[in-house]
Design a protein around this nucleic acid. Structure first.
Lengths: 180, 180
DNA sequence: AAAATATTGTAGCATATACTACATAAAAGA
DNA sequence: TCTTTTATGTAGTATATGCTACAATATTTT
């Protein structure tokens, strides 16, 4: 039993890397099997079906992403510093693939497809709590509101970045800095 | 020749409605043919291949969307009024399906897939010019920046809305209103 | 060693998808 | 009217995908 579970974990790890690199859309059993240097037959030996595979793998990826987020923790900073900081982090090689997957997850979630919807909500909850501990506000009452604005803003950056509107992002950041 | 082009337009219209309702992912030749009460064979009679069909149809949808946007024009208003106004519009029954499709387009665009990437950029350009004519600023120099912030914010709302984080959106809007 | 269980290969099925070949019916042009 | 386009049906191909049946080989347990 133990050996079985162990190999399952190894497969999840490899498949996780593949999906992070190539997205969910290309995650056919064949592609995943090739990536894990095994056969589709074997994948279905370790997992009940594709859905279980995806659920476990996306959960694993999510955990990694959340851990990565934790590592980017810094001292608290005000809104106008936090936004540029987050944009810079977003562009980091390590984080980029997660952002790309994030967009794909949102598209699937908008149709309420499971397990994507639940996983996306989990990720977004992590965003919220991350921002909540990272943001510095003058009076505590406005904290929730400023955090929400920060969340919306960086999510907007995610979209603009996907469409290569870096110029608009830069302008927005300039505006935010100056409004201080 | 004329009759051919005319029927092609009719099909584009019907297929456009289907895609707006059901998304690109479900737009197989069979589904589209059923929707248009014809056969896949016929669709490929009118269109060179699926890609031409999608390109023409998505272009048609985009034009409709831009027209819809034009209709939502009002007098110029400042940032803190424009954001809540746009959120309300976003939730309108008419506009909602376009937003849903918009998310799917972004996910496809993030992989630079054509024709999705080009069409998404076109739509985003329309967003930008819409905001530019709708926003009221104190001094003209900051206009580009405020517009960019507005764009990012409502794009962020699009994501949060897809994940049913209405609560966060409301908080953000409250915050924006109060910051005046 | 024998029996039971776990692991893997080969092959195939059922369905879906984009697209094509061939043929016939209908319409338009001469 | 006759010929040439145009429109449509039936059927099929090639490929992909998730999954299963059956069998053979390892590995473990007794």
């Amino acid at each position: 039993m133990k050996k079985f579970e162990l190999k399952k974990l190894i497969i999840i790890k490899i498949i996780g890397e593949y999906i992070l690199e190539n997205g969910i859309k290309n995650a056919s059993l064949k592609n995943l099997a090739d990536a894990a240097k095994t056969s589709d037959r074997m994948l279905l030996h370790y997992f009940k079906d594709k859905e279980e595979m995806l659920t476990l793998t996306l959960t694993y990826i999510t955990e990694n992403f959340i851990n990565l987020l934790e590592k980017t923790r810094t001292e608290k900073m005000p809104f106008y510093s936090l936004i540029p900081y987050l944009y810079k982090e977003m562009k980091e090689t390590q984080i980029k693939p997660y952002i790309k997957l994030w967009i794909e997850l949102i598209a699937l979630s908008s149709k309420k497809e499971e397990p994507f919807y639940s996983i996306s909500r989990q990720i977004c909850n992590s965003f919220i709590s991350w921002i909540n501990t990272a943001i510095q506000v003058n009076n505590e009452e406005e904290k929730d509101q400023v955090s929400a604005i920060a969340l919306a803003t960086i999510e907007g950056f995610v979209i603009l970045d996907a469409l290569d509107y870096d110029c608009q992002i830069i302008k927005a950041i300039e505006g935010i800095k100056q409004k201080t």
